[in-house]
């Protein structure tokens, strides 16, 4: 079982313009993701969610603190952490199967081997009928499915997803939430998932961290199991209207809202 450890992570960006101050995007973040965790980061825009993911992905080195994957410090991006972006990051000149097996191609695996590995994941995301389509021939939801298959294909220890469903319409989004949960359940991978939808966060998370900006930090953490309840009867709408669900939702909204008021005043 893998484990991702953030210890006292601080990220400071240089001042965006002259005569402004440095941006404390993250301050003293402690977070451990392990086993079968599905960790969701929730917070208003600008509270450092993407920065946190970028640190885990290795796209930026923290100004302070350390990030360890199975006790090894993260020095840069790598195939052991699969990233799914908000806007799909597919390569328009490759078809679905080549996009999904891009990482395997980089590892110099031969086409037959690539196809064998990636077919499994394309089937998992429901794209096995679209192998030869090009990204521009797919809907937004399907493009994100390709992104998921691609991130899965290198068999990473953790999936890092930055608002992967943010650009989708409400109906597609609900379908995709279930898909992400199914993938998680099937592959037993750790997931770090960013969203600013409260309902989505509570529905998919086993652990929900609520973040607050300036400086970016975790102000509240919940252990949840609504996703497990979903697997029992596969009725998302029923789960989302459970009294417990609504209670958590109300509490989280109060925190975020109170936080906003506090910021407006100060």
């Amino acid at each position: 079982m893998s484990k991702l450890d953030l210890k006292n992570v601080t990220v400071i960006y240089p001042p965006p313009t002259k005569d402004t101050e440095e941006v404390h995007a993250l301050e003293n973040i402690d977070l451990t993701i392990e086993g079968n965790d599905f960790v969701v980061a929730l917070g208003a825009s600008g509270c450092g969610k993407t920065t946190l993911l970028n640190v885990m992905a290795g796209f930026i080195q923290p100004s302070g603190g350390e990030v360890l994957l199975d006790a090894n410090p993260i020095k840069g991006p790598g195939a052991d952490r699969g990233v799914v972006f908000q806007q799909h990051a597919l390569l328009p000149w490759l078809n679905v199967i080549d996009n999904a097996s891009f990482g395997l191609m980089l590892q110099k695996k031969n086409p037959a081997e690539r196809k064998k590995i990636v077919s499994k994941y394309l089937k998992l995301v429901g794209l096995d009928e679209f192998l030869n389509h090009f990204p521009y021939q797919l809907s937004g939801g399907m493009q994100q499915r390709v992104g998921l298959a691609r991130a899965l294909s290198s068999d990473p220890a953790i999936m890092l997803m930055d608002e992967p469903l943010g650009a989708l319409d409400a109906l597609t989004r609900e379908v995709m939430q279930e898909l992400v949960l199914d993938i998680w359940n099937e592959t037993k991978k750790m997931v770090f998932f960013i969203t600013h939808s409260v309902d989505e966060a509570i529905f998919v998370a086993t652990r929900l961290i609520v973040m607050s900006p300036r400086p970016g930090r975790i102000i509240k953490s919940y252990n949840l199991d609504f996703n497990l309840r979903f697997f029992k009867n596969r009725d998302a709408r029923q789960v989302k209207s459970l009294p417990e669900f609504l209670a958590v939702r109300q509490e989280v909204l109060d925190i975020i809202h109170g936080d906003e008021i506090r910021i407006d005043q100060g």
């Binding site: 195939a79 952490r81 990051a89 390569l91 000149w93 891009f102 980089l106």
Partner: peptide, 29 residues
């Protein structure tokens, strides 16, 4: 080429040379 496409390649295990060859060069076509 978008920054997401480049980051996608790096997080798929690409080296700098592979990013230039497989992403930037093709994207510039």
């Amino acid at each position: 080429v978008t920054i997401e496409q480049i980051q996608m390649a790096y997080s798929s295990g690409a080296t700098r040379a592979q990013v230039i060859w497989h992403v930037i060069l093709k994207g510039a076509m």
